[in-house]
Design a protein around this nucleic acid. Structure first.
Lengths: 340, 340
DNA sequence: CCGTGGTGCCAAATCGCTTTGGCATTGGTG
DNA sequence: CACCAATGCCAAAGCGATTTGGCACCACGG
C-alpha cells in the first residue's frame, strides 16, 4: 500500500509550513513566486493529491453532483433505473458531470433534508417531480444548489430545465396529420407526472383546434414493475382502441415502449402499420429506433448539459429560470404514410 | 438554509459528551442502554445526520463505490458511455451499490494511483481491462479493494467476475448448429479486450471439433466513435462475407449491434433471415430484442451483484478468485431455423 | 532615526466525526 | 473493610485539508 502523501509531507520536504503549501497550490495567499514554484514541484514529485474527504470537510464542497431519481410509490429506485429513459438520464448526467470535472453520485432513496445535506453535494439534479412529490419539500431548506429536470407540478419553484411538452406533443400530432392521419388517438400513462397532464391537455386542445374528435386512453403504467411490461399494457390499451368503433388512423404513445405496444396491438388485430395506422411515440430510444417507430428525441444530453451549467455557473440561476429544450422529431417507417 | 446539526448539538441537547453521542449512535463503546436510547431519541428529534465528509475523514471510508470504465485509446469516456452495454453496466452498478447502501461514483479519467486514492473509495470496480491497460498498473499499490469485471489479459491478477466467454461463445455456436446451420461465420471486433481473442479461439477450436471450416472476419470497431456506427461497420463486413464464395448459413456477431448489422447486410444482399441465414449476437440489448435477434444476455446485474458482494464482504476475496458468470441464451426469430 | 506599508511566511483554529486512554463510581469478593 | 473488576462516561487527540490573524523583515519617505 502506498502511504498517503499529505500536505504535511510536502511541507516538510519543501522546508516550508503547511500553510505555505496550501497557499502555493491553491494560489491564494501571499507566497514568493519562487517558493510557490518549488512547492509545486515538490508536490508533483511526491505525487501529492489532496484528500477529498479532508478537502470536503474543510471547504464544505465535494466536487460531486447528486442525481435524485423519481421515487414512485409503485416502483423501487432500482426498477426505475431499468427504464431506458432513466438509465440514459443517469448516464448523461455522469457524462455531463465528468465533463465539468465533477463526479456524479446516484443517490439512494432520500428521506430527509439533513440526510441530503450530509452528502455535501456541490449541486443536485432532481428528476421528474411527481405531483405532491415529497422530495420537493426536502429541497426547501436545502443549501445545495438545485436544478429540476422535468416539469414542476408546482409551477416555477426553482431553476429548471425541461422539455417543452406542449410543443413536442403538438409536433407529434402535426407530423401525423401531415402524413394523412385525421383521427389521431393518444395512449397516455397514468404516471403522476404533471407532464402527463400537460400532454393530455395539449392533445385535447389540438383536437379542438382541428375540429376532430379526441381518442384518449390511459394505459395503467403504475401497475408495472419492470420495463418489459410497459409494451404489454400499452398493447392491451391499444387493442381496445383499435377494436372500438371509429378507430383512429394514428396513435401516439406517450411513454417509453408505448409505440412498440401499439405496433404489437396492430399486428394482433391485423392492421398494417403504417398502411392502415400511423404510430408515433413520445420518447425515443433504441427500441423505437430498431422497430422503425417515429419518436421524439428528448435530447437528454442537452438537458443535462444545461442542468450542469446552471449548477456550476458563478451566478446562481434565478429561481424562476426555466430553460425549455425542444424535442427533436425523428420520423421513421411507422409514420411513412397511410395506404390511401 | 437549515443549520447543520452536529454531534456537539446532540451532545448538548442530551446533556452528555460528544464521545457518548458517537458511541450511542454507533453502538460501539460502553454506554448505559438507557442513555443510549435517550441519545438516539434526541438525535432523531433534532434530525441529526452525520456529515459524510467528516465521517469519511475520520474513518477513511466513504460508503462509495467507484466505477472505472475502460479508457480506449480511440474513444472518450463519454462516447463509451453511449454504448448500450456500458450504459447498462453503469446503471446496474448504481443499483447494486444502492442495494448495499453505498453510492456509486462514476470516475472521470484517472491518471495516478494517488488520485484514485484521493477519492477514499470503499471499493473499486474496474471494467473490461484492455491489453496493456495502464489502469492495471495503477491498481498495484492501491489500498482500495478492487474487483475486476471482465477478462483480465494478465491472467488471474486479482479478484474478478467475468462472463465465461469461451462457454458462451460455444453456446451460441451450438445453438445455431442445432437449428441446422453447418457453416457458421463469426464477425469479431478488433477491440483490444482479451475476451475478443478468447472468443476467436473458442470459435476456431469449436470449428475444428466439428470439422467445419471457420469463417472469421474482423469488423473495425476501433474506428468507430459512437454507437450508431457499430451496426454499419458490421454490416459492411457481413456483406463481404455474404458475397464471398461458400457463404455461411449462420453468422454470429461478437459485439453490440453486430447482429443488427448482419441483418441489414442480409437484407441488402437479398438473403432471408432466418430462412437462408441464421443470425445471433454476443451481447443482448434492447435493439437485439426489438429486432428479434437471438443474443446472449450477459447478466450484467448478476455480475455486478457479485462484484459488490466481493467488495463489501468482511473477508477480502482471495486474489486468485475469479467468479464466472454464464451468459443466458435468448433465442429469438433470427435463429428460428433455416428454410430447408 | 522612526513610522508606515508591503511582503513572505507560519502557528493555530476550524470543519465534524471517531477513538483511545483514563477517571470516577459501583458492586462483589476475600 | 479493603481491594479489584466492571461499568459509565468524558477529555483530548487524531483524520487532512483551508483559512485567519499575526509576526518578522525590508524598503521607503518624512
Amino acid at each position: 500500500m502506498v502511504a498517503r502523501v499529505t500536505v504535511a509531507d510536502v511541507a516538510q520536504a519543501a522546508g516550508v509550513s503547511i500553510t505555505t503549501v496550501s497557499h502555493s497550490l491553491s494560489g491564494k495567499g501571499r507566497v514568493d513566486p519562487a517558493t510557490r514554484k518549488r512547492v509545486r514541484e515538490v508536490a508533483a514529485e511526491l505525487g501529492y493529491v489532496p484528500s477529498r474527504a479532508a478537502r470536503n470537510l474543510a471547504l464544505g464542497r465535494s466536487d460531486t453532483i447528486g442525481l435524485l431519481l423519481p421515487q414512485l410509490p409503485t416502483m423501487s429506485l432500482e426498477d426505475l433505473l431499468g427504464f431506458d429513459y432513466y438509465g440514459r438520464v443517469a448516464v448523461a448526467a455522469s457524462q455531463a458531470a465528468l465533463h465539468h470535472g465533477r463526479a456524479l453520485l446516484v443517490l439512494p432513496g432520500v428521506q430527509s433534508a439533513s440526510q441530503l445535506a450530509s452528502f455535501g453535494l456541490d449541486g443536485l439534479i432532481v428528476i421528474d417531480p411527481i405531483v405532491d412529490d415529497p422530495r420537493l419539500a426536502l429541497l426547501d431548506g436545502l443549501a445545495t444548489r438545485t436544478v429540476l429536470m422535468g416539469q414542476d407540478p408546482r409551477g416555477a419553484f426553482g431553476p429548471a430545465v425541461t422539455i417543452d411538452t406542449a410543443g413536442s406533443t403538438r409536433a407529434l400530432l402535426d407530423h401525423c396529420w401531415e402524413r394523412g392521419a385525421r383521427t389521431i388517438g393518444m395512449i397516455n400513462s397514468d404516471l403522476p407526472w404533471s407532464a402527463t397532464d400537460t400532454a393530455r391537455d395539449s392533445y385535447t386542445a389540438w383536437c379542438a383546434e382541428r375540429g376532430v374528435e379526441p381518442h384518449l386512453a390511459i394505459a395503467p403504467a403504475t401497475s408495472v414493475q419492470s420495463r418489459p411490461e410497459l409494451a404489454q399494457v400499452a398493447k392491451q390499451t391499444a387493442i381496445d382502441m383499435l377494436r372500438g368503433s371509429d378507430r383512429p388512423d394514428a396513435i401516439i404513445g406517450m411513454l417509453e415502449d408505448f409505440g412498440r405496444g401499439v405496433v404489437l396491438a396492430a399486428r394482433e388485430v391485423g392492421i398494417d402499420v403504417p398502411g392502415d395506422l400511423l404510430v408515433a411515440q413520445d420518447i425515443d430510444d433504441a427500441v423505437a429506433s430498431a422497430g422503425g417507430i417515429t419518436a421524439l428525441d428528448l435530447n437528454v444530453h442537452t438537458q443535462l448539459d444545461i442542468a450542469l451549467e446552471m449548477l456550476i455557473s458563478e451566478e446562481p440561476p434565478p429561481v424562476e429560470e426555466t430553460r425549455l429544450v425542444s424535442a427533436t422529431l425523428v420520423p421513421r417507417e411507422s409514420t411513412r404514410g397511410l395506404a390511401r
